[in-house]
Design a protein around this nucleic acid. Structure first.
Lengths: 227, 227
DNA sequence: GAGCGTTTTTATTATTTGTTCAATTTCAAA
DNA sequence: TTTGAAATTGAACAAATAATAAAAACGCTC
């Protein structure tokens, strides 16, 4: 489960983002001002916070600083929402605390891909199917969630899954897999990869990992599969 | 499907390139500045980005650096558009991130052949018919798309197709084919090639691969065929 | 050093891929 | 137009590769 908190004073925006983020499979909370936002943050420990810069009361910068001062949230992802006319360089300067920003008016698709990119940078790979985050790989927490339930993966299996999922649709050759997961110097039998792949498939289902005979394996998103 | 993003502040250029690239069968998006371009990039994951160097706001270099800093786009192909009077060496120095550049004023035909060359370097061979990319061979994903649908090819067939398609109209002698696809040391019967050619024809249609009796085979683009 | 979870190996089976063979057809040179 | 080398084709066969299950080896922690 990936949780996102939206803090914006405009109800329209909150609605728009909330609707679209939920449709993308995220768990969304929203607040209309900084105080309420901070309270919700403490209560729900979001993975990412979307924060409007221009707000009455505490503005986005202040909220951002408050977040960064809060124990346990120094590294929580923050994405600013900025008005179009604000200077790019000025925003860049404010980056002290934020991880990214998106200019208003916000296009949901743009925001979502930015968010996915941010999460990925943090080691979270999320794959959605319909309106559910079907699979969430969280490198920081070393956890894989499938439809909300946590599945335990031993190290090698986790690394293999994370590698394949890091580039959906791309074929990883067996040699490359060995190199990245096992290390170039380690020598293991050729069946070792297969066995690990089987264990992954047992746990997350057969659909995701596809064999490319003679080459290697690739990870495919369910929604993109053609039968 | 091969996707290209054009980032240029001049509307005329965007129109010109967009029109010509679409006619060539590419899927094209365009933006008038760096910010919008980056947003479109995140949303559409282009295979290649055409980037004007001289732009108000973020210039091409900055955009290029931003692209390279973005997770998942470190290896996306970038082609610069440079003003004629800009110093070659200066541009070359800036090459930090770009894969190629084309001098303005841009001649669509020149640009397109440069782009095809770039894509090819990445293992993507695209053949167009009318204004559709009829056949796309993607080595990274190990797939062949025919009119948008993916066809599966086993290793030898894939290699053979990729070889023939790599030089349309060029006749590959049987000996050369054996050498490149099977390896110089491997010895296989003479009929083996024929059988593989037959399988290719079964899958992509008879038109593409033409027999040159006594010599070998060649790949011809449909649009160039005379009936 | 016993016990447990993890990782690797081994052996077997299943599946896919690649090759050969032989009958038939095509094609270009005579 | 004939003719024979060359190519096509379908089917049978062989080889390569992967899936699977079960067991052995490893490396922790207690």
């Amino acid at each position: 489960m990936v949780t996102i908190l939206v803090i914006d004073d405009e109800e329209d925006i909150r609605e728009l983002l909330s609707y679209n983020l939920k449709k993308e499979g995220y768990d969304v909370y929203s607040a209309e001002n900084g105080e309420k936002g901070l309270a919700l943050m403490l209560a729900n420990k979001p993975d990412l916070i979307i924060l409007d810069v221009m707000m009455p009361g505490m503005d986005g910068i202040e909220v951002c600083e408050a977040i960064r001062r809060t124990e346990g949230f120094q590294k929580t992802l923050i994405c600013f929402l900025t008005a179009r006319n604000e200077d790019y360089s000025q925003i860049a300067g404010l980056d002290a605390g934020a991880d990214d920003y998106v200019a208003k008016p916000v296009k949901p698709k743009v925001l979502i891909s930015r968010i996915n990119a941010l999460l990925r940078r943090k080691g979270m790979i999320t794959l959605s199917n319909d309106d559910v985050k079907d699979l969430v790989i969280n490198r920081e927490k070393y956890i894989v969630e499938k439809n909300g339930t946590v599945i335990h993966f031993p190290r090698k299996e986790f690394e293999l899954l994370a590698l394949l999922a890091s580039k959906p649709d791309y074929v990883f050759e067996r040699e490359i897999i060995l190199d990245k997961v096992w290390g170039s110097d380690i020598v293991v039998g050729d069946r070792t990869i297969d066995v690990h792949v089987r264990k992954l498939r047992e746990k997350i289902g057969d659909h995701y990992i596809k064999t490319v005979k003679g080459i290697g394996y690739k990870f495919v998103e369910i929604s993109k599969q053609n039968p």
